[in-house]
């Protein structure tokens, strides 16, 4: 396969296994590029990309912007807080206004699930989903699985646990799709109240015993407790959460197993994992960030290659 089967990156659900493998192979080359003394290639020099963020983001936005600039694309940034959205403009109108300025691709984060799908139907540009509500965050899942592949050599047959606030996480759903397409076995772990009711329908295991999950898995992907999305009390207290699901060095020492530790960031240090664990050699959190740029370069490059000029 030399070309993606999709015209937009809206979610991992739409991708085939071969698409993911192509993205990884291309990302391997971009990882080499971003480690050169001069880290820029001219591939997207005639493409303009709008980063449209209707929700706050630090690393995803930075990572996309860096990926775009490393590919020599022209970049415009838009954030909802300083825009006409607050004056009541619709999503499609906002984007069409941006496209009228001759933008070729849109990277969008939006609080509503499916916003990117709507956009892909309504506007004439390549759309990359940078997170839509609690639905999908495809590039995060791609960089997570890419990082596992890099550290463990392969993903097929590996046991990966996603731990913590699954209910409010877009990272979780995209990761589940990506890991399953690549042949991993996925376990969800966290307070019962933060595991979605439909979890079993995704063909994943659910195990609420964190110590057993540490013992049985090759990878722990620790998710952030998203307090800002919680309108109810899903667990009694942070102290209680840490006691049951906080990843500490003591807890890891008790296990015979040494799993790879991942976190999509930002970390609530002392809640889902202790500082000692976050800064340990088993944690690949900063590798994930580095790989994020290479994977996003790969996605943008492969989507752009489907926009033939002639």
């Amino acid at each position: 396969m030399t070309e993606l089967s999709v015209d937009h990156l809206l979610g991992i659900k739409d991708l085939q296994k071969e698409d993911i493998e192509l993205i990884f192979k291309t990302a391997d080359q971009f990882k080499e590029v971003i480690n050169r003394p001069i880290k820029k290639v001219p591939s997207l020099r005639d493409i303009t990309i709008a980063n449209v963020f209707f929700e706050n983001s630090t690393r995803t936005k930075l990572s996309f912007e860096l990926a775009e600039k490393r590919l020599s694309a022209d970049v415009v940034n838009f954030s909802a807080s300083s825009s006409s959205v607050s004056k009541g403009e619709t999503l499609v109108d906002t984007i069409n206004n941006i496209l009228a300025m001759k933008v070729d691709m849109v990277v969008m984060r939006h609080p509503h699930p499916g916003a990117c799908h709507l956009l892909a139907q309504k506007v004439d540009a390549k759309i990359v989903n940078a997170g839509d509500g609690a639905h999908e965050h495809p590039t995060q899942a791609l960089l997570d699985t890419y990082s596992i592949r890099e550290k463990l050599g392969k993903i097929k047959g590996k046991k990966v646990a996603i731990v913590g606030d699954i209910l409010h996480s877009r990272v979780a759903l995209s990761n589940i799709y990506a890991l399953q397409k690549l042949g991993a076995e996925v376990t969800l772990c966290g307070p019962r109240t933060l595991i979605p009711q439909h979890a079993e329908s995704l063909d994943v295991k659910v195990d609420l015993n964190f110590d057993r999950v540490i013992q049985n898995n090759d990878v722990l992907n620790m998710l952030r407790v998203q307090n800002e999305r919680m309108n109810l009390d899903y667990f009694p207290s942070n102290r209680d959460y840490v006691f049951q699901y906080g990843l500490t060095q003591d807890r890891l020492n008790k296990s015979q197993n040494k799993p790879l530790i991942m976190h999509p960031g930002p970390i609530n240090r002392g809640v889902e994992m202790s500082s000692e664990v976050a800064d340990s050699n088993d944690a690949i959190i900063l590798n994930q960030v580095e790989n994020g740029v290479a994977v996003r370069m790969s996605v943008l490059y492969l989507l752009a290659s489907k926009m033939n000029i002639v």
Partner: peptide
């Protein structure tokens, strides 16, 4: 590859 002038052509 990333420096070729026939990308998208």
């Amino acid at each position: 590859t990333f420096f070729r002038d026939d990308f998208r052509r």
